[in-house]
């Protein structure tokens, strides 16, 4: 419905902003570095410091900040490989939850 459109846009923007912020916190990125993250920016498997413990913390923080639940089965290499993949997953999760 057209009346819901602005709300959906806000939610998508919020999802991306939260995701960028959590990645900034986990990777210790400066604001300008966070802004440079694009769809193809590599994450798990590309950044040596992003090990399973760091990713676990990242997923838990995303859950807490966006009030979603990420199941073990949701987590796979594709979803975590790039910023775009993770963003698509979280956006979808927020719509279905």
């Amino acid at each position: 419905m057209a009346t819901n459109l602005p709300v959906k846009i806000d939610k998508a923007e919020e999802t991306e902003a939260v995701l960028r912020q959590v990645l900034a916190d986990v990777l210790g990125l400066a604001p300008e570095q966070v802004a440079e993250l694009d769809e193809d920016s590599g994450l798990f498997g590309h950044l040596p410091e992003l090990d399973s413990m760091a990713v676990a913390g990242l997923l838990t923080e995303i859950e807490d900040r966006l009030d979603i639940l990420i199941e073990d089965d949701d987590v796979d290499g594709e979803m975590l490989e790039t910023f775009g993949g993770l963003l698509a997953f979280v956006t979808d999760k927020r719509q279905t939850d």
């Binding site: 399973s52 990713v55 676990a56 073990d72």
Partner: peptide
């Protein structure tokens, strides 16, 4: 529960990297 959640999740992820299918 919060302490265990992240540690279990990390364990599941490293298990999977090693080809072991585990769940929390």
């Amino acid at each position: 529960a919060g302490v265990l959640k992240s540690m279990l999740r990390a364990r599941v992820m490293s298990d999977r990297e090693a080809g072991i299918n585990s769940d929390r």
